Simulated scan of single mutants.
Amino acid sequence: MRLTSTPRIEFLRTLAAEVLHNYGRGRTVIAIDGADASGRAQFAADLAEVLTEDDERNVFTASLRNFQRSQAERNRFGPATPERHYRFGYDYSALRRVLIEPFRLDGSAGFVTEHFDADRDTWIEPTWRTTSADAILVVEGDFANRPELRGLWMFSVLLETDPVTPEDVLYLADVTPREIVDAVIINTDPAAPRRLFLDRC
């Protein structure tokens, strides 16, 4: 279904067209990075909706929030601190094993988009999905361009805001994500996001 045109939708259509031009066939994985959790999640959801508006393309969304370690696992790395959360809060092995790797297989391998409920500190009963040969997965989350996740994304977006937590400060000092991503987007006004083009020469 064609969405009502707004400055935000038109911006997302331009971004979607770039992704589809470069990765219009096969299994494509897009990452949405950034410090603003609610803004990041909404951007990912809206981009997924735009990617499906013109045809029957299968588009899935997932959040790194649902691939965190359990409280018991985190406690093995010491007391709760911002650094512990940043370095040991997520189960990237599970992310690869049950979502990214099976999704990227061009076949009938099943994948799950949710693994762990951090609010309830409990595992989520897996719902195994399959999809067509041409499909897109949009993954949003904290620290999406850290070294452990390099190579997982075909296209990566950074929504820039000022760091609001000590974890974000650690991440930006450790990684400098704006030098890695394909698109840097200023999302301080969600109704009218704008892209920042950086001179990397």
Rank of each mutant, 00 (worst) to 15 (best):
V184A: 08
L172E: 12
L64I: 09
E73M: 11
D55N: 15
I124S: 12
L158W: 09
A72S: 07
A16T: 05
L15T: 07
F155L: 06
V98H: 12
T81W: 13
Y86N: 03
A37G: 07
L95F: 15
F155A: 09
L137T: 09
R96T: 01
M1G: 10
A72F: 01
E167R: 15
D55P: 05
S38M: 08
R8I: 00
H21Y: 03
A183L: 14
P166K: 10
F103A: 04
E53H: 05
R69P: 04
F197L: 11
Q68I: 06
G141P: 11
T165R: 15
L137A: 02
P7D: 13
L15G: 02
V169G: 08
R65N: 02
T52V: 14
S5H: 03
F11W: 06
D54C: 08
F155T: 14
N75W: 09
A31I: 01
F11N: 10
A135R: 09
S132A: 11
E18D: 13
V112W: 02
A133Y: 12
T127P: 07
R87Q: 11
T188W: 00
T165N: 13
V59A: 10
T4M: 10
P7R: 04
L64D: 00
I185D: 09
D55S: 13
N75A: 15
I180S: 06
F111L: 04
P177M: 12
D182Q: 15
T113M: 04
A44H: 04
A16I: 00
E167G: 13
L105D: 01
P82V: 05
E125M: 01
T81A: 14
G89H: 04
L159H: 11
L137H: 09
A191G: 13
V50N: 01
I9Q: 03
P82I: 01
G78P: 03
V59D: 06
A191C: 10
L158M: 08
R129P: 03
A133N: 12
T130M: 01
A94R: 05
F143H: 09
E114M: 06
D55H: 01
L159G: 15
G26R: 12
